[in-house]
């Protein structure tokens, strides 16, 4: 298939970016990233700089891919990362616009690569259970209801890609933060330091300059792991209660 790519090129964080146009021949069984590999091989053969894009596992779990395809993070398919998007989703003659994730807290490093270290700092602020190695009781000491473990998993499945922030017109990181808070809150082990965690993580999130949530819901639609917006409501509840109810 013949495709026209409009790819964002930006030398570094300080440079002005622009779109570059390329025509490319792709096959329908290629993954989207393999299509970009083909583009890069072509650029290299012309002694030009390839398009920098982040990728690693290419099986939808590491969360490295960070591009917006025709206005949508990770492209048009729900529950799919860019690396699992295949070219059979497009037809010959299509023009595809590829941009980096955009949010002030995700500054561009180069081309389609952005800096998502703000997510790490949110986790460092409290996205853990304070237990040292060796302190743990037997795994079966505290039973966890099957459905509850499953719900916790649904929140824990976040891959930290940042598509939620990228999709949000406000650049808000609520879905990411709330998924982590709820993953731990729903397990008895995580309940213990729950109030502190909520406050600290929200504080860090605000400090990183993420926008305010206005319940648009695009985050959840674009989330490759289909994390529900219910997490956001739950975060709000926990946050309000930790601020106003708990001492």
């Amino acid at each position: 298939m013949q495709l026209t790519l409009k790819v964002w090129r930006q030398k570094n964080g300080n440079a002005q970016g622009r779109f570059e146009h390329h025509n490319i021949e792709a096959e329908e069984h290629m993954s989207f990233l393999e299509m970009l590999d083909v583009l890069n091989e072509k650029l290299i053969s012309e002694k030009k700089e390839p398009v920098a894009f982040e990728h690693d596992c290419r099986e939808g779990i590491c969360g490295a891919c960070s591009m917006v395809i025709n206005g949508r993070p990770h492209g048009p398919q729900t529950g799919t990362t860019t690396c699992q998007l295949h070219m059979r989703a497009y037809k010959s003659g299509d023009t595809i616009t590829i941009e980096p994730f955009r949010a002030n807290s995700f500054p561009v490093i180069k081309d389609l690569v952005v800096d998502r270290s703000s997510f790490d700092r949110i986790i460092q602020a409290g996205g853990y259970i304070s237990v040292n190695t060796g302190q743990a009781p037997d795994g079966n000491t505290i039973p966890v209801e099957k459905d509850q473990a499953s719900d916790a998993f649904d929140s824990a499945t976040c891959i930290g890609c940042g598509a939620c922030v990228a999709a949000c017109p406000n650049g808000s990181a609520m879905l990411f933060t709330s998924a982590k808070v709820n993953h731990l809150e729903q397990l008895p082990q995580g309940k213990v330091e729950h109030n502190r965690r909520v406050k600290d993580m929200v504080k860090q999130m605000d400090k990183e300059g993420f926008g305010k949530c206005s319940n648009v819901g695009a985050c959840s639609v674009e989330c490759p792991k289909e994390i529900s917006v219910e997490n956001i409501a739950a975060l709000n509840r926990h946050y309000l209660s930790s601020v106003f109810v708990k001492k």
Binding site: T97, A103, N104, S105, F210, G211, A218, V221, E222
Partner: peptide, 15 residues
Amino acid sequence: KAKGSKYAVNTYENG
């Protein structure tokens, strides 16, 4: 301010 620059392609498919 938090969003910074906008996307070249705007879509309502996700919200």
